[in-house]
């Protein structure tokens, strides 16, 4: 790493003699390691956390072909009159998009603004015609504007 004690250091480039990496090269090597680590972290975590994002009709089509669809995310509007809360904190409701509907069961943190007519995104597994949601998200207010006309329909 260091120039030997007492040696006179001429121009930086001259240090890059045979058998000795130039500081530039060392730096690029370290930088390369950082960039590769970033790429590696992105790659492995993408594989383990990725979920399909489908519309309700797409999900139904896929489920018809493959039976169950695991690790999938679906958006839809909560249908009026379908929300049931069980005593244990469980939640059942139906979401709709483009005329297609699926029932959802969920247990966990319920978004503040959850209710009939709200657009939600659920993530989980679709099995035997029921969506078992692990997370339930609602849209953020910064996006509410585009959502309102649909709500009024």
């Amino acid at each position: 790493m260091e120039a030997p004690a007492g040696s006179v250091r001429p121009l930086p480039d001259a240090e890059a003699g045979p058998g000795r990496l130039s500081p530039n090269l060392k730096l690029y090597a370290v930088g390369g390691v950082i960039l590769l680590s970033v790429a590696y972290l992105v790659y492995i975590n993408l594989g383990s956390t990725v979920a399909y994002y489908l519309t309700v009709p797409e999900l139904l089509r896929r489920a018809e072909a493959a039976g169950a669809v695991d690790r999938v995310r679906v958006a839809g509007w909560v249908v009026d009159g379908t929300v049931e809360r069980s005593a244990g904190g469980g939640l059942k409701f139906v979401i709709e998009e483009e005329g297609a509907r699926i029932p959802v069961v969920y247990r966990g943190v319920v978004p503040d603004i959850f209710g009939p007519g709200i657009q939600v995104v659920v993530e989980g597994d679709f099995r035997d015609g029921t969506f078992q949601a692990k997370t339930l998200l609602a849209k953020c207010p910064s996006k509410f504007e585009s959502q309102l006309p649909a709500q009024q329909n």
Binding site: N45, V50, A51, Y52, Y53
Partner: peptide, 15 residues
Amino acid sequence: KLTVGPPFYNQVNGP
């Protein structure tokens, strides 16, 4: 359409 959630960001950006 494939999507990633908070675990992705935490696991990548944490280190």
